[in-house]
């Protein structure tokens, strides 16, 4: 065999082995979700069994699962829309009309993201308690909007900077007003960037588990909080937990795979290119 081909085959085996090892817990969870509760805890563990959809049906029939899923969707999408709405004008101004302090402003925004949430847990908790925002969807939407705003501003800023200025300039020459310029030129031109920014924001909101565990109990609890309730000893239904978890992570996993490139940009604030 040609040494190059052999090398490639060895790399293929090693690469897939490493990937398989890392992915294994997820694979095992998905597999368990198709077992019965008895099979799920069987020793030795069953690799071959008759798959059943029973767990998915049970989970779906429990109305509260749908309730938690809807909370997750409403909160993630709501916070993402709100953050984008606030961030677009700021990113537009910073990308196209930079001043002396634009860079400092941007850095300051990013630095707010570096404050640990526990540092402000108590005041936020008390504020929420006193205003009746505990366990409400809008309360969590506000927190998530603020949590992601720096990342959204930052990502939109970098995407806007890639839009050729000449096009906006030309539009302006033709008499486009600022609002028209943003709506009819900038936003359509940077749509892919805006989409991946929104996707990243949704991922971060969906998986957030500090504020959701501390600020919600049942009414507004998203899936992170719901899954956490399985940690109680009486809640040890592994197959049902697996089914509930599989549905909970599936859409976000797909989103994450779609946006892996932009993810690096968003999460490192441009420190790695």
């Amino acid at each position: 065999m040609h040494p190059r081909t052999r090398e490639k085959l060895i790399l293929t085996v090693v690469g897939w082995f490493a990937a398989g090892l890392i992915f294994f817990p997820i694979f095992w969870m998905v597999l368990t979700s198709f077992k019965t509760e008895v099979e799920a805890v069987a020793t030795p563990p069953k690799l071959f069994f008759t798959p059943t959809l029973e767990n998915y049906i049970t989970v779906r029939e429990r109305a509260d699962y749908v309730h938690f899923a809807i909370n997750s969707i409403v909160i993630s999408v709501g916070a993402t829309l709100l953050a984008t709405l606030i961030a677009v004008p700021a990113a537009y101004a910073m990308a196209f009309f930079p001043g002396k302090r634009t860079k400092d402003l941007l850095l300051w925004m990013l630095s707010t993201k570096m404050m640990p949430a526990v540092g402000v847990l108590i005041p936020i908790y008390l504020l929420f308690r006193d205003t009746g925002a505990i366990d409400t969807r809008w309360g969590l939407i506000v927190v998530y909007t603020l949590m992601n705003l720096p990342i959204v501003v930052w990502m939109l800023y970098t995407f806007f900077k890639e839009v050729p200025k000449d096009i906006l300039e030309a539009g302006r020459m033709d008499g486009a007003k600022p609002k028209q310029e943003v709506w009819m030129l900038l936003l359509p031109l940077s749509l892919p960037g805006i989409a991946s920014t929104a996707l990243l924001s949704i991922i971060l909101c969906w998986n957030e588990a500090f504020w959701s565990l501390n600020l919600t109990t049942s009414q507004a609890a998203p899936l992170t909080t719901f899954i956490a309730s399985f940690s109680a000893p009486e809640g040890l239904f592994w197959a049902k937990l697996s089914a509930a978890s599989t549905i909970a992570i599936a859409p976000i996993l797909v989103f994450g795979w779609m946006s892996q490139r932009q993810l690096v940009r968003g999460l490192t604030f441009g420190a790695v290119k």
Binding site: A18, A19, I22, P25, M29, N207, T224, I227, S231
Partner: peptide
């Protein structure tokens, strides 16, 4: 497959 764990919510 290798980057998948990052998208799994911490409680799961």
């Amino acid at each position: 497959l290798a980057i998948a764990p990052f998208f799994v919510m911490p409680t799961v």
